[in-house]
């Protein structure tokens, strides 16, 4: 456990987000600058090193499936959904973007277009209703915009949401939650940030009565392991009968 994700609370997030282009987007993705800086907890995951998913390493620029500008918008949105604050790190630190990017390459590949259209509509809606691009809004105004997107108020503004704006919001929120609170094997939940946030003591194979009593007493130490650290499992099933 040598290098941890950079504590970006020290840096102005606004400045980070303003930095246009690939470099700026890459800075938001933990481990994006190269394998050396990949967060230790994930790199240590034996199954990640060995497994097929490891080949799809952290993106080295804007997300594989989105442009730099789209990546910035998505970063800013995800950052507001689970912000880094005095309660601890947020969705960006947890690797939600990397999770979403991998998902868009695999299981959620049908959603790439929905991201493209939704992010463009989000920015148009910010300009239409608040008079400025989303990235230039204050945190409070960003939140207000996102509430209107979530609740469907942005739908009738004619800014290009397909169906309800809430469907776009819910898609991003659902994927962000998967990235923060799901198994680290998929590229998110770096350093078990998500599981620590909610006090989930981690994936285990067996929980004894003693473990259960310790859990109930608030004394069960977190397991800090991916399911695939247990060695028994295969993520991709071979063609064998």
């Amino acid at each position: 456990m040598s290098d941890k994700p950079i504590d970006r609370r020290a840096i102005s997030r606004r400045d980070l987000l303003k930095t246009a282009g690939a470099a700026g987007a890459a800075a938001l993705i933990p481990g994006a600058a190269g394998a050396k800086e990949a967060p230790a907890s994930v790199a240590d995951t034996a199954a990640v090193r060995a497994g097929p998913a490891a080949a799809a390493a952290a993106p080295a620029g804007p997300l594989m499936n989105l442009t730099a500008a789209e990546t910035e918008l998505l970063s800013a949105m995800v950052d507001r959904l689970i912000p880094s604050d005095d309660m601890g790190p947020g969705a960006l630190e947890a690797g939600a973007l990397r999770y979403i990017d991998r998902a868009l390459s695999e299981a959620e590949s049908d959603s790439v277009e929905a991201y493209r259209i939704g992010l463009a509509a989000l920015d148009r809606y910010a300009r239409y209703s608040r008079g400025a691009p989303f990235l230039e809004l204050s945190d409070e105004d960003k939140d207000s915009v996102l509430i209107d997107v979530q609740l469907g108020g942005a739908t009738g503004a004619g800014v290009g949401f397909v169906g309800s704006s809430g469907a776009f919001f819910n898609m991003v929120k659902s994927h962000t939650w998967q990235g923060v609170f799901g198994d680290p094997m998929y590229g998110g939940n770096i350093d078990f940030i998500g599981w620590d946030l909610i006090g989930y003591p981690g994936a285990r194979m067996r929980v004894s009565e003693q473990d259960q009593r310790e859990l109930e007493a608030g004394q069960l130490p977190p397991a800090r392991r991916s399911a695939y650290d247990y060695g028994q499992f295969q993520l991709i099933r071979g063609e064998e009968d």
Partner: peptide, 29 residues
């Protein structure tokens, strides 16, 4: 964990954001 962190907030606030982080830490279980 994912479904637990997606719980409703019983009208007490947004289901995301900083205030939600406090809510979920207290109420997730």
């Amino acid at each position: 964990p994912i479904s637990a962190a997606s719980m409703g907030t019983y009208g007490r606030g947004r289901n995301w954001g900083s205030a939600w982080k406090r809510f979920i830490r207290e109420n997730v279980d």
